[in-house]
Nucleic acid binder design. Structure first.
Lengths: 166, 166
DNA sequence: CCTGAAATGAAAGGCCA
DNA sequence: TGGCCTTTCATTTCAGG
């Protein structure tokens, strides 16, 4: 299992920075129980090794005028690898598409989209997505309201697993 | 339309902090073209007003041993408001459920789940989700691979809209 | 509402244990 | 490795335009 190169202090650092990514290094050091310099060295190492991929402010989309959030299920005609890649590349180029995941089962991709209003989304849908090559089926579901939106990973579950396998 | 209390500098601050939430305030001030003290005041105000909901390190789930990501479509028997709320509350209590959104259309909720392996997810599915009150239908889709996962909101789209309506 | 300066406090590097 | 010391730089407050 992965995550084994990490000791409990590293995991605590990751959990703390996932919860508050703008914490100062001295605050972080205090919370994980070591002094600041080694703490900073650990953070840098975690960034280098790719355990931390970045830091992001969590902005309120609705407050900013992005009232509409939509999940879109996409089926393709051809599932050849090159065609899958081509569709993924298009998704990366569409700013309204925030997430694109390839799925198993009847549908090929799920997209999470954000738009200022319904008509902006509709014109993206009809003008870009539905007319893109190889797109066979599209099913959209508007988000009525969000009930939970946690970033990252549940560290409690991780710690519980590690203590069981120890 | 919302976002109107924000001037171009505020929007630039949000865009920069969304891209790099751990940037120092002086670096941020330099990028948005003002000096550090007013920049910090603006950031604090944006936090107070709820435009910035938090800061999070983006940790690599796979590296940490969360190999499995699953989208789950849930239909309920009763869509009475109290029953919807009850289900949302349960989702908030389940650590493997990272996101829960209420949808329009045939399905009631979409969940995004993370788990260390398939058997952990299966036991959550059969032991928790399928046996929860009021759950009528559950359809799961494993994520084969992720193609795009951008946090937040496309600020280019926002700026383009504002310049058109100006 | 901003700039600029001054004091406090944090980041980052060297070095020893 | 972690801890301590020192320098450098950032944060924060305050005076003033």
């Amino acid at each position: 299992m992965a995550g084994h190169r990490l000791d409990p202090i590293d995991r605590k650092i990751l959990a703390e920075l996932q919860a508050d990514g703008r914490m100062t290094n001295v605050e972080l050091a205090k919370r994980v129980g070591i002094s600041a310099p080694p703490c900073l060295r650990r953070v840098r190492a975690l960034e280098e090794q790719g355990f931390i991929k970045g830091y992001h402010a969590d902005v309120d989309a609705r407050e900013l005028g992005f009232e509409v959030q939509v999940f879109v299920m996409v089926g393709l005609q051809s599932q050849a690898e090159s065609d899958l890649r081509a569709f993924e590349g298009r998704c990366r180029d569409w700013p309204l598409v925030r997430e694109c995941h390839m799925l198993n089962g009847e549908v090929d991709f799920i997209l999470k989209c954000a738009a200022p209003d319904l008509s902006t989304f509709q014109s993206f849908l009809t003008g870009q997505l539905l007319t893109a090559p190889n797109v066979a089926s599209v099913k959209t579901s508007l988000v009525i309201r969000g009930a939970k939106d946690e970033p990252g990973v549940p560290f409690d579950v991780l710690e519980e697993r590690l203590s069981r396998s120890a």
